[in-house]
Amino acid sequence: MPNVSSVSEFLLLAFADTRELQLLHFALFLGIYLAALLGNGLILSAVACHRRLHTPMYFFLLNLALLDLGCISTTLPKAMANALWDTRAISYQGCAAQVFFLFFLFGSEYYLLTVMAYDRYVAICKPLHYGSLLGSRACAQMAAAAWGSGFLDAVLHTANTFSLPLCQGNVVDQFFCEIPHILKLFCSDAYLREVGTLVFSVSLTFGCFVFIVVSYVQIFRAVLRMPCEQGRHKAFSTCLPHLAVVSLFVSTTIFAYLKPPSISSPSLDLVVALLYSVVPPALNPLIYSMRNQEVKDAVRKLLQYMFLNHQ
């Protein structure tokens, strides 16, 4: 076995060394972060303040907005601070915290998206049973199960990852502590142990993906059998945003963690990391509000109330 090293901090070396590019990255990240805060904050406020949106679908959307805020707040503030102050270091404990919260929040979000697929399936395929299957207590239990599953997944991966010996230094070619890059620093036999844990998580994730696909097959079959065109349009308008979010989340995450090593490069890894960790939290509020008239009306009323009260 190579010499085991003791590490007190990691160096995040994803970006160029020139000061101009560092400030450009800071400005870009700041813009994306503010957009995510604004979009998800408006979703949270609209759902919380409007009784018309106190339904299972919007309850789960509120949870999704909370998770998106947590996801983007785990990575971007530290990356912005490093770019602004021309530093690269993140403490060992800080890196472990990033890994924990990323697994917790991303895992919870994926399980929540699975629950949201079930919500749409019941609403469209079993509308007469919607109230009994998705009452307030059932919704709270399903949301708690999604958050709890993400938490257990995060504990498993974080404890397993940071109990392994490091043999390859402390340089991470990314702007946050990403598991695939940290795994490269482990001794070879330790790497294989963590890969086994990842395989378990991927298997569970694949099971959720199959459930989502089967749910949407049933949903589209039911929608296409609807005799009224207006009913079909309304059903599609409530399903397509969720389907778009699932597609964006799954495609970017799977590519990030399962892409072949032969096509890996620092620039590609950086782009993929941005796509799955930064872009979805910023775009999800826009995706959910574009085709949802109820959300747009609630946000418009909220903005009007805020502006009128500050005049």
Rank of each mutant, 00 (worst) to 15 (best):
F10R: 01
F10Q: 04
L11M: 10
L13F: 12
L13R: 09
A14T: 12
F15E: 11
F15Y: 15
D17K: 12
R19G: 13
E20P: 00
E20V: 07
L21R: 14
H25Y: 14
H25R: 09
A27R: 05
A27S: 11
A27C: 08
L28Q: 08
F29V: 01
F29C: 01
F29Y: 07
L30I: 09
G31K: 02
Y33D: 06
L34P: 03
A35S: 07
L38A: 05
G39N: 01
G39K: 04
G39C: 01
G41L: 14
L44K: 00
L44V: 01
S45I: 04
A46K: 03
V47I: 11
V47F: 00
V47E: 00
A48K: 08
A48P: 00
C49I: 03
C49M: 12
C49T: 10
R52W: 06
R52Y: 01
L53W: 08
H54V: 05
H54R: 07
T55C: 02
P56I: 14
M57L: 15
M57H: 15
Y58A: 04
F59E: 09
F60R: 13
F60G: 15
L61Y: 05
L62Q: 11
N63M: 14
N63V: 04
L64W: 03
L66H: 13
L66N: 12
L67D: 05
L69Q: 06
L69S: 09
G70S: 13
C71R: 08
C71I: 14
C71H: 12
I72V: 12
T74M: 05
T75H: 08
P77L: 00
P77W: 01
P77M: 08
K78Q: 13
K78P: 01
K78R: 14
A79K: 05
A79P: 03
L84A: 09
W85T: 11
D86A: 14
T87N: 04
T87C: 05
R88H: 15
A89P: 02
A89S: 11
A89Q: 13
I90Q: 10
Q93T: 15
G94W: 04
C95M: 04
C95R: 04
A97Y: 12
